[in-house]
Amino acid sequence: MAETMLKITDLVSSYGNIKALKGISLEINKGEIVSLLGANGAGKSTLMKSILGMVKIESGSIKFKDTELVGKKSHEIVPMGISLVPEGRKIFIDVSVEENLNIGTFFRKRPAARDKELRDMVYEVFPRLYERRTQLGGTLSGGEQQMLAVGRAIMSDPQLLMLDEPSMGLAPLVIAEVFNVIKKINEMGITVLLVEQNAKMALKISNRAYLMNTGQIVVSGTGEDFLQSDVLTSVYLGGKKE
């Protein structure tokens, strides 16, 4: 049996009076790519932020390996090896590209050689970042900023990497590149939780997927299951059938 990396049980999270997650249970095994699907407002980003300790959790449990994360702050959670590439451009605009990548290494203890290895990998995957390494983050194009956000998360050498719509705003060619990177990261042994509007592409590289609707999990299954069934088109894509 596969080793469980993250186990969420009956998670309820809220923003003020609004319950955004209404009892979510899911599991991610070590080495998997798991996709989280769902319409706008389903609670996908909220789930990721809850794992990182950035949303108020009302009840339930989030176990990362043997550690309970509920009640911990993000600055305690990140060093355990969980990273998030947040939705939208969340890079630091007034520091250089290189420094943005460095910041990824701030809160993970490991040998300097590992930093170099990861940095080389990021630059290899995104040569554009290497060309722009001395430029300020804010001067990058939207797509480049997105690459930087992904690169920075790789630099933090996570065990669990959460990617919230990493292909948002990218050109089709670059999107394909990002999906290649995700596979590559996964092959390095990093477990991935992925949110993507581009459901088909996401499912193709995913071991398993969960479909969310208004704060709850509706269906779960393997990537294959999802691709073959019509749950996607009926429940989630709602006409956006390709």
């Binding site: 600055h75 990140v78 947040p86 920075r152």
Partner: peptide
């Protein structure tokens, strides 16, 4: 300069 972004990085 960016409290939310910094928190996500573990600051």
């Amino acid at each position: 300069s960016d409290p939310e972004g910094a928190a996500m990085m573990g600051v």
